[in-house]
Design a protein around this nucleic acid. Sequence first.
DNA 1: TATGAATGAGCCTTCATTCAT
DNA 2: CATGAATGAAGGCTCATTCAT
Lengths: 210, 210, 210, 210
Amino acid sequence: MIENLAPAPSKREIASEKRRNHILESAIACFIDKGFHQTGMRDIAARAEVSIGNLYNHFPGKHDFLIGLANLEGEMIAPFIENLAVEGPANETFNAFLQDYWAIVSDKDVAILTAEITVEAMRMPDIAKLFLEVRRSLAHALSALLEKGLTQGIWRPSGDPLHTANFILDTIECAADRQAIDTTDSQTQLAHLEKFLIANLGAENTVHER
Amino acid sequence: MIENLAPAPSKREIASEKRRNHILESAIACFIDKGFHQTGMRDIAARAEVSIGNLYNHFPGKHDFLIGLANLEGEMIAPFIENLAVEGPANETFNAFLQDYWAIVSDKDVAILTAEITVEAMRMPDIAKLFLEVRRSLAHALSALLEKGLTQGIWRPSGDPLHTANFILDTIECAADRQAIDTTDSQTQLAHLEKFLIANLGAENTVHER
Amino acid sequence: MIENLAPAPSKREIASEKRRNHILESAIACFIDKGFHQTGMRDIAARAEVSIGNLYNHFPGKHDFLIGLANLEGEMIAPFIENLAVEGPANETFNAFLQDYWAIVSDKDVAILTAEITVEAMRMPDIAKLFLEVRRSLAHALSALLEKGLTQGIWRPSGDPLHTANFILDTIECAADRQAIDTTDSQTQLAHLEKFLIANLGAENTVHER
Amino acid sequence: MIENLAPAPSKREIASEKRRNHILESAIACFIDKGFHQTGMRDIAARAEVSIGNLYNHFPGKHDFLIGLANLEGEMIAPFIENLAVEGPANETFNAFLQDYWAIVSDKDVAILTAEITVEAMRMPDIAKLFLEVRRSLAHALSALLEKGLTQGIWRPSGDPLHTANFILDTIECAADRQAIDTTDSQTQLAHLEKFLIANLGAENTVHER
DNA sequence: TATGAATGAGCCTTCATTCAT
DNA sequence: CATGAATGAAGGCTCATTCAT
């Protein structure tokens, strides 16, 4: 089966892409350390151990680091979307998702980056687009899971699943942000969060308890 | 009742404070328009129609505008804290709070400012302190309301009220942020949000339905 | 007689204008030495012994030095326009003008600056406007002198006086440019130029000779 | 008659020269569009659709584009020098020259390039040399024509023919520059210019009038 | 030949802040 | 309290040129 009609990337192209990634990672490291606006192109170049001029051979401008970062966040989210779609009882899938997702987003670096992107997205439509695309995909995947849970009789009917999914993600993400500002025990927080969200779903177990 | 041990402010002091507020408002308007880091002291001075030198008579540095902003956010939140403590059925109080609070935080300008402060709070402990103080007060007030709701038998027991309160605020605030990036109908969003949160509280109506 | 309704400039304003002029002169000196595009803002600041930031308090950008220079050229030309209008025999006035004008424009520095402005004027409409305004005023003044010469019977009729005036200025200026590139004896050149231009005017002496 | 002592150029050498010319033309197009100093090597490479590295295989540096341009101007002038030497009445030759030369130099692109070279020539001796060589050849050819006109009795004696020739060229070129900055009708301008210059030569028509 | 990644000095401009007036 | 000139480091970005491939 022919999959790649495009010519195989040359050695040089591979090397160039590697360097591009390396530079992007350096930039992101700077953004974590100092913030987007506090990071200068010089900082990025120094961290990547690359000349400042060469930076511009790989990224047309500072803005493109933001785009690169947003894309990277998208890649980070992709596996979650996949996992939300796996076969099995919805509540188990949900719990697994919650645990893994929290592990990621409650990481201080990730929280910082997400906050930075959020702020920039408010003023830069192209960043907003990338940001929202990822968010929407995730919300849809979670929404599908919620619907599955309903048909499986695991959760009681509640509001519109897509909205619910978005609110669930909101709760997780905003809680993660708070965690980044005011560090507390992450696992405890997760436990409370689970309880909160499952209660929300009108979870069967709660009902059964009565 | 002794209210003012300090001497009454002179006319001059009053005028000065007025000017200070005027400048702060100008600064905030700039932050909304362009963002904190994109705003220069010159922008603020120009907007306030004040000389750049005079700016420094009222605010020792750029950082202090952030502090001023954080304080202002605190003042904005104060009435909500009061209202959460009023006598009456917890669910009514809650609904009123939800409606009013959403009206505030889903305003695009407010959402932008909150996001800006959040990001800065991640790197500046003094801003974080102000930011968290307000947040904690609000969470405590809401937590108290939740407990009242429990004792009033309005809501079924759920997790720790303080954590729940925080999560509720998280949901509202993060949903408001999304609203700022990807404008949708605010009232519809509020309706869904209400359903989501009330479901979460193991709301009586759900129970009553059974 | 009231001449100045505007308030008298304060000491500070006078000082500021002095500094502005000083900076402009420094800039022009740089332009003579290295050319407009080869001159950096740092060069100008250094030459004016002023900080680079302060440069921008007096000139909004590099472009404005060009405007300043064009204006200065205009001021340099103004007395010539006045002198062309003095009473007396047209040929004497013309000879005096030719001598004085040549003295100015054949100066290497002036020639360089004029050439620089000419090039920039070709691409920058605002510079072109300033440049042409001065040129037109001078051409008109010279044209008026030519007409006076005709009515005085000093010169024989020739083409349209305004065009003739322009061509005369063209000849002088371009000859001056050549002088700047390929230095020769300025006085000899002037003598030849006089003969060339007077011949052009169908000068009486030529006629008398016959 | 021996014409080529050098070995005949190989195919490869011909191809290389073609490429060189192509690149030079691209560079000149850039200079016309943006000016010499505003044009980057990247601009030239992009316009020539050649890699930036390859540029340096054909031109050792940016400066050499200026030399190439000056040479090209020389080639452009060569036919005029030839034509000034043709047999026939001097006034006819002169009129033909004036018409053709004006057609060339009053072209806006040519005027721009000439102005750019002039400015650079003021600071770069090698450019000045090339520039002046061409100018001198042209002036000499025109000077020879003027002398022929004298011996043919077509023009009355005037000043030194070489100086006169130079001034005539000055007038034409500077008028062309003005045309480039402040576009007017080129043909009208030419008619006036003819009258101006012929008057200068003690033109026959004046004589005929008597 | 031909490519384009790599260099780092340099570009114009803006920054937060100070201070003499 | 008010002004705005003054500072110079730093901002993002472009430059002509080199060189390994």
